[in-house]
Design a protein around this nucleic acid. Structure first.
Length: 570
DNA sequence: GCCGTTTTCGGCCCGACTGTTTTCAGTCG
C-alpha cells in the first residue's frame, strides 16, 4: 500500500460515515488524517518497518494510527468493509454530483432507494425527487442536469491549461472600469499540477456591476450562482470559475482566504482563535475591531508568522516551519542557469541545434544539454552511434562559435527492459552528461521495474534519470516504481533525478520532490523541450520544485558550469 | 476521532449562496 492508496481508502470511509450521519467532526478527523498521510514525504510502509509511531503525525491519534497500520499491512480495514456492508458503494458516486451532499444522498437512498447515478436519473425524470421534503423543482432540475453530464466533468484541469483560460479571463475583467486589483488565487496560485476550478479575486468599489460583467463573459456556458460578492460559472470548456469581490482594504485577508489550501487556512485560523482573534476573508478581528490586513504579510504577522509562499500552503508542516524560522528559501526561476533536457530536429524536436542554443542564450542560460533520443526509440527518430558522433562534432563547432553559452554533449538514452542501456559504455564515455529514461515495458511489476532503474544507475556513466515515473497527467498512471528505493539508490550512486517540466508530465511530482530533498538527492529541473517555445515551461518545473520545498542548493542546474561538471562526477 | 498557554472534556474556521423555508439547512470553498 502506497500513501496515496491509504489516503484514498480513509477518504472513502469518511464519505461512507458521513452518509450514515456520523458525527461531523469524526468524519473530519478521517479526512484530516487522509490529508496528513497523502502529504507525507516518507512512506507509511517505511515508517512502520522502522517501528515509528504514526500517532506522532498531525491529526493522527491512537485509533487512526492503528487503522492506518492495518491498512498498510493488509490492504483492507474491517471498519471500511463494515461500512461498505451497511452503505451501498453506489452512494459514493452520487456525492460527485454538485448539489448533492451526504444529507441529500441519505434522503434519496432512504426514501427512494436510489443507489446509483442511473437510478437517480430515472427518479428525477419521473419527478420523484422534487416530491421529497427539502427538495424542490429547481433542485431536481439541477441534479438531473448534473447527472446527465457527470462523465464530462470528471477530470481536474492541468495547470498550464488553467493558466491559458485564466489569462484571457483576467484580461477581460481588467477591461472593466470598476476593477482595481485582480489575482488568480486558489490551487492555481499554489502551483498545483492540476486545478479543480479557477478562483479569481478582484477588489472593486461596485461589486454588483463587476459580478454582472463577469457572468456576461463570452466563455461562460452557465451561471451556477451569483451574489453581490461571489459568483460561480462554468466555461464552455467545462472549467468552473469562482469570482470573489472585496474592498481594497480586505485584499490581504481575502487573498489569503482564497489561496488556501483549505487545510492551511483552518490551521492559521485556529492559531488566530488561540490568540483571541478571528480571521475571515475581510480581515483580522479582535472582537468587533478590525485590525488592518491589506496584505497577506499583515495577516500572517497577526498570528506571529512570517509570510509563507503559496506553494507551501498545504498544511504539510509549513506552519510549524514558519514558527521555528525554518521556512525554506525556495528556488526561483532566476536561479536556473541551464536546461539539461531538450530535443532537436535530429530526433523528434522541431528546432535545430542552433535555434535551441540561441533561444537558450536569450533566456540567459550558461549551458544546455542536447539530449536527443537514442537509437532504440525509432518512433522518435532516435540517433544511432554514427549520427550521435556527428552531432557531437556539430556541437563542438557551435561551442567554438557562440559566446556565453555552452552546449553539453548528451543523449536521452533508453533504459532497456533488463536495465542495460541503449548505447555501449565507450559511447556513453564521450558524453558530457548522460541522461536516461524508460520508454518501454511500462507493465513490469513494481519489483522488476525498480530493479531495472537501479541497474541502469549502476552504470558509472549515468548522471540523471529523466521523468522518473513516466506518468502523464490525466493520461496514464506511470509505471510501478518503489520511489524510495530509487531515491536511496540514486543517493548512494551519486545519480540525480529530474523534475520534468513538460506540463503533461511534471514528473517527479511534488511529494516525490520532497522525498528527494529528505533523502538528499539533487534534482534537475528540465523542460524536455521539443521546440524553442517549450523552453519556457521551465517555470512550471520551478513551481513543482517549490511545492517540494526545494531551495537553490537542492537543484542541480542552479550550479555554474564549473560546479555542474564537478557535481556530475560520480 | 483529535487535541491541549481555557489541557482529559468539550470544543473543533468561517462565510456566501440557494432553495425552500418563513428563519434556516444544505452545500460549497
Amino acid at each position: 500500500m502506497q500513501n496515496a492508496d491509504i489516503a484514498r481508502l480513509l477518504n472513502r470511509l469518511a464519505d461512507l460515515l458521513e452518509i450514515e450521519g456520523a458525527n461531523a467532526f469524526r468524519v473530519r478527523a478521517y479526512r484530516s488524517a487522509a490529508q496528513s498521510v497523502e502529504g507525507l514525504a516518507r512512506s507509511i510502509t517505511d515508517m512502520l518497518a522502522k517501528e515509528e509511531d504514526l500517532a506522532a503525525l498531525p491529526g493522527i491519534g491512537k485509533d487512526l494510527a492503528e487503522k492506518i497500520a492495518t491498512l498498510a499491512n493488509t490492504g483492507t480495514l474491517p471498519a471500511l468493509s463494515e461500512a461498505e456492508q451497511r452503505t451501498p458503494r453506489g452512494l459514493l458516486e452520487l456525492l460527485r454530483i454538485s448539489q448533492l451532499g451526504p444529507k441529500r444522498v441519505k434522503t434519496l437512498h432512504d426514501q427512494l432507494g436510489i443507489d446509483s447515478i442511473e437510478a437517480l436519473r430515472k427518479a428525477a425524470r419521473e419527478g420523484k425527487v422534487s416530491a421529497l421534503s427539502s427538495f424542490g423543482k429547481k433542485t431536481e432540475e439541477k441534479i438531473l442536469a448534473e447527472a446527465e453530464r457527470i462523465d464530462e466533468r470528471e477530470q481536474r484541469t492541468r495547470l498550464d491549461e488553467a493558466g491559458q483560460a485564466a489569462d484571457v479571463l483576467v484580461a477581460y475583467m481588467q477591461q472593466f472600469d470598476g476593477v482595481n486589483r485582480i489575482t488568480v488565487a486558489g490551487s492555481y496560485r499554489r502551483g498545483r499540477e492540476t486545478v479543480g476550478d479557477l478562483d479569481i479575486l478582484v477588489t472593486c468599489n461596485n461589486d454588483q456591476a463587476v459580478m454582472d460583467h463577469f457572468v456576461a463573459y463570452d466563455g461562460v456556458a452557465d451561471v451556477v450562482s451569483q451574489g453581490h460578492t461571489r459568483a460561480t460559472v462554468h466555461l464552455h470548456s467545462g472549467l468552473q470559475v469562482d469570482l470573489r469581490a472585496v474592498a481594497d482594504e480586505s485584499y490581504g485577508a481575502a487573498l489569503h482566504y482564497f489561496t488556501g489550501s483549505q487545510a492551511h487556512n483552518v490551521s492559521v485560523r485556529k492559531m488566530a482563535a488561540a490568540k483571541g482573534l478571528k480571521i475571515n476573508e475581510y480581515g483580522v478581528f479582535k472582537g468587533d475591531e478590525q485590525i488592518t490586513a491589506r496584505s497577506e504579510e499583515e495577516v500572517f504577522a497577526q498570528v506571529g508568522l512570517p509570510w509563507i509562499a503559496p506553494e507551501l500552503r498545504e498544511n504539510r508542516g509549513e506552519i510549524e516551519a514558519a514558527q521555528q524560522g525554518k521556512l525554506p528559501r525556495l528556488v526561483t526561476r532566476d536561479d536556473i542557469r541551464g536546461d539539461l533536457h531538450m530535443h532537436t530536429t535530429a530526433s523528434d524536436g522541431k528546432a535545430s541545434l542552433r535555434e535551441m542554443a540561441e533561444a537558450a542564450q536569450r533566456l540567459g542560460y550558461e549551458y544546455i544539454a542536447i539530449t536527443d533520443h537514442s537509437q532504440r526509440l525509432t518512433v522518435a527518430n532516435g540517433l544511432d552511434i554514427k549520427r550521435l558522433r556527428q552531432q557531437m562534432e556539430e556541437i563542438d563547432a557551435l561551442n567554438a562559435e557562440l559566446t556565453g553559452i555552452t552546449l553539453l554533449k548528451s543523449s536521452e538514452v533508453d533504459i532497456l527492459e533488463d536495465g542495460s542501456l541503449d548505447f555501449p559504455d565507450e559511447v556513453l564515455r564521450e558524453l558530457d552528461i548522460c541522461i536516461c529514461s524508460v520508454h518501454s515495458k511500462f507493465e513490469l511489476s513494481r519489483a522488476r521495474q525498480t530493479e531495472r532503474v537501479l541497474r541502469a544507475m549502476d552504470n558509472p556513466y549515468v548522471n540523471l534519470i529523466a521523468h522518473p515515473t513516466g506518468r502523464i497527467i490525466n493520461g496514464r498512471e506511470g509505471y510501478q516504481l518503489d520511489i524510495e528505493a530509487v531515491l536511496q539508490g540514486a543517493r548512494t550512486r551519486g545519480v540525480h533525478l529530474e523534475i520534468n517540466a513538460q506540463p503533461k508530465r511534471l514528473d517527479l511530482r511534488d511529494i516525490h520532490v520532497r522525498m528527494a530533498k529528505e533523502v538528499g538527492v539533487l534534482l534537475s529541473i528540465d523542460t524536455d523541450a521539443h521546440s524553442v517555445a517549450q523552453l519556457d515551461n521551465i517555470g512550471l518545473g520551478v513551481s513543482q520544485a517549490r511545492r517540494g520545498w526545494l531551495e537553490k542548493n537542492d537543484v542541480l542546474n542552479t550550479r555554474t558550469l564549473a560546479q555542474l561538471r564537478k557535481a556530475l562526477k560520480r
